[in-house]
C-alpha cells in the first residue's frame, strides 16, 4: 500500500493512546495521539521505510513497583512496556536498524525529592534500556514544568508536540 502522505490531518483517524497504554499501527490513515504526558514518558518508534510505528505512554520507570500489575498492564512501566512496543513494531515488519526513536515527557516538579522525581527517573529508565539494546534515540524532548500532547502521523512519521499555552510544533 502506498502511504497517503498528502491527506490532511483532519481526514485521518485519531487513535488515542491512554495513560499506561501502547499502540502500534501500519495504517497510513491513522494518527496516534497521547495526551497528558506530564512526568509520564512517551516513546515513539517509527520505521520510515516500512511505514509502521507505535507509541508508548508509560507512567513509572520500573515494574518492581508492582509485579502483578506489570503482568496485567505491562505498558504502565517502562521496563515492561518498552520491549513490548519494539516487539509489536517488529511484528508489523519494522526493522530495528531503521527505527527512529523519539522520547518525550518526563516533566519535573521544581522540587527534586526522591518521591516526586518520577519524570527524570522515567527518562533515565528509557535511555538506559535503549542503550543496553544498542539503540540511540533520534530525538529527546523531555523535562520542563509542563505537560505535553504528542501526535504521530503513521503515513510520514511526522510528530507534532503540543504544550498548554504554546503553539503546536513539528519535531
Amino acid at each position: 500500500m502506498t502511504p497517503n502522505k498528502g491527506a490532511p490531518e483532519s481526514c485521518k483517524k485519531m487513535v488515542v493512546v491512554g495513560v499506561g497504554n501502547m499502540l502500534t499501527s501500519s495504517d497510513p490513515h491513522t494518527i496516534l495521539v497521547t495526551h497528558s504526558l506530564g512526568s509520564c514518558i512517551g516513546v515513539v518508534a517509527y520505521d520510515p521505510v516500512a511505514h509502521v510505528g507505535g507509541m508508548l505512554h508509560a507512567m513509572l520507570p520500573s515494574s518492581a513497583a508492582n509485579h502483578d500489575r506489570a503482568v496485567a498492564r505491562p505498558f504502565v512501566f517502562v521496563d515492561t512496556g518498552l520491549p513490548a512496543l519494539f516487539n509489536a513494531i517488529y511484528g508489523l515488519g519494522g526493522n530495528k536498524d531503521r527505527l527512529l526513536v523519539t522520547i518525550t515527557g518526563g516533566a519535573q516538579f521544581l522540587t527534586r525529592s526522591p518521591i516526586f522525581n518520577i519524570g527524570p527517573r522515567n527518562v533515565a529508565s528509557v535511555t538506559d534500556l535503549l542503550l543496553s539494546n544498542g539503540i540511540i534515540a533520534h530525538l529527546v524532548e523531555c523535562g520542563g514544568q509542563y505537560s505535553r500532547t504528542l501526535r504521530l502521523d503513521l503515513a510520514s512519521g511526522g510528530l507534532i508536540l503540543d504544550a498548554p499555552g504554546c503553539q503546536p510544533r513539528h519535531l
Partner: peptide, 22 residues
Amino acid sequence: DLIAHQTGSCPGIASFAVRANE
C-alpha cells in the same frame, strides 16, 4: 494534587511549576 499530576492528570499551563513541601 502532586500524585494526580504524576498520573497524567496535569492540565493547563505550567502544571509542574510547583514545589513539594517535603
